[in-house]
Simulated assay, not measured.
Amino acid sequence: MTSSRDTMTAAVVVTHSRTVGRVLLQGGTVVALVLLLAFFFAMRPDTFLSFVNVRNILYQVSILAIIAAAQTIVMVVGDFDLSVGATSSLAGSVSATLMLGNSPIPVAIVAGLAVGLLVGLVNGVLIAYLNLSAFVATLATMTSVIGLAYLVTAGTTLFGMPAAFNALGQGRFLNIPLPVYSAIVIALVIWCALRFTTVGRRWHAIGGNVEVARLSGVNVRFARLLAFTMAGLVSAIGGILLAARLGSASAEQGGNNMMFSVAAVFLGMTVLRSGAANLGGTMIGVAIIGVMSNGLNILGVNAYVQQVVTGLIIIAAVTLSSLKTRER
């Protein structure tokens, strides 16, 4: 009797442990964000969750949120884009150069957006129609685009853009920086496109199973081309806003956003049971990165240590995503 009762108790404990494990795996990203908020609030209760600091966090991650949204589009399709950061830098540099050459602000912005579209289109053609791997194609594109950005800027940092342009990145509405609103609008548009449009459903279908999508009548090549093109355009928006926020443009000022955008998407993959890329999860991943960076700065942690922590977070994100895929 005792042996039978012990066996039942052990079975209940094992079942409970597995349930807890699934819950942690399912909501690991959300739990991590809550724990980070709690930790930094406990360390700096008078500063961390103040309105000013929360606003600073939103301001700091606004551009990353836009770049990560671009990365999400591509990763929904089952690919990834190493060139999003370089594309944003080139777009900002082109717009800045044209404005310094007395071109009207709208013309300079449209030119920057056209650069993003062109880079995305090139990526799409290389990957969808020439069948190059996304890693090889976007790595090559990233290298070339960085070189073009250096040529456009002559290897210097560009200053002196018109005040009206800088206001796009430095202005405020209701005491909230304008890039925060831009990031929210872009994220909502992309979320709606992924969730409610035919193109979005096709992207999800391709990311789930390319062959099934093809047999279902989806033009896989064109859909992948469109995904990379849209990612290029959104990256360009981020780069132009970054130039406006900083009041300057350089060849590599958006470079770190590529690494952070990939980390944010991987972190967000644990939010859904399917373990697929999704915009809501990506934004949670962006929040984790922003909260961590801001909290470590408040605590006075060395910048090099922050780089180590960032690397560990990327490893954790990929590991969680891998575990989620195996569970599937």
Rank of each mutant, 00 (worst) to 15 (best):
A303M: 13
V234E: 03
C192A: 15
T157F: 11
Q71F: 04
G268Q: 03
V210A: 08
F228W: 10
A128Y: 05
G120Y: 04
M8C: 04
T282V: 04
A108C: 09
I298Q: 06
S250N: 13
A223D: 14
F39A: 14
L113Y: 10
T143I: 14
A187M: 07
S182E: 11
L178E: 02
L132C: 12
R328A: 12
V136L: 15
G247T: 00
R328T: 11
A263P: 01
A134P: 04
V271L: 10
N297Y: 14
V84A: 06
A193L: 11
L168I: 07
V301S: 08
V136Y: 06
A91I: 02
G101S: 15
T229R: 05
G238K: 05
I206K: 00
N257Y: 15
V262P: 09
I190S: 00
T9R: 13
I313D: 01
V305Q: 11
C192I: 15
R172D: 12
I67N: 08
S62K: 03
A164D: 12
V262F: 08
F40I: 04
V110W: 10
S88R: 01
W191C: 02
V76H: 00
M1R: 14
L58A: 13
G85F: 07
R55I: 10
L178P: 11
Q170I: 08
Q60C: 08
S50K: 13
L320I: 12
L226I: 11
V122G: 01
E327V: 09
S293L: 13
G78N: 07
N56W: 09
Q307C: 05
L320M: 14
F196R: 00
G171E: 03
A287L: 13
N278G: 08
L117G: 12
I298D: 08
L25K: 03
A236N: 04
F135S: 09
A91K: 00
L272F: 07
V119W: 12
F165H: 04
